[in-house]
């Protein structure tokens, strides 16, 4: 199973129509990857679908970078008892 970060990168690439190889953990969704506000909402929805979790939308939307999103999602998975490791 891919890591949380790899899965976050894959979802981000799909939603923002980017090459996954171009996405780095330190990249900001808005400033570096060009996510519009509507796409941020779509990203939150797609992360929830990918990981089978339920995120607080205001908390989730305050996360700025790809790496921070992976950390935040890993934390939510732990809290909600969703396994992320093989």
């Amino acid at each position: 199973m891919a890591s949380v970060l790899e899965r976050v990168v894959a979802v981000t690439a799909r939603v923002l129509r980017l090459d996954p190889a171009e996405i780095r953990p330190e990249h900001s969704f808005a400033a570096d990857l060009g996510a519009e506000s509507v796409q941020s909402i779509e990203l939150v929805a797609m992360f929830e679908e990918e990981f089978g979790i339920d995120m607080d939308e205001q908390e989730a939307l305050s996360v700025e970078t790809v790496g921070a999103a992976a950390e935040y999602i890993a934390g939510v998975c732990r809290k909600q008892g969703i396994p992320t490791e093989p």
Partner: peptide
């Protein structure tokens, strides 16, 4: 509901 691209999302939440 925040209806975006024809589907219901959580959008920016009730605080907004």
């Amino acid at each position: 509901a925040w209806l975006i691209e024809g589907v219901v999302t959580k959008g920016f939440g009730k605080g907004k």
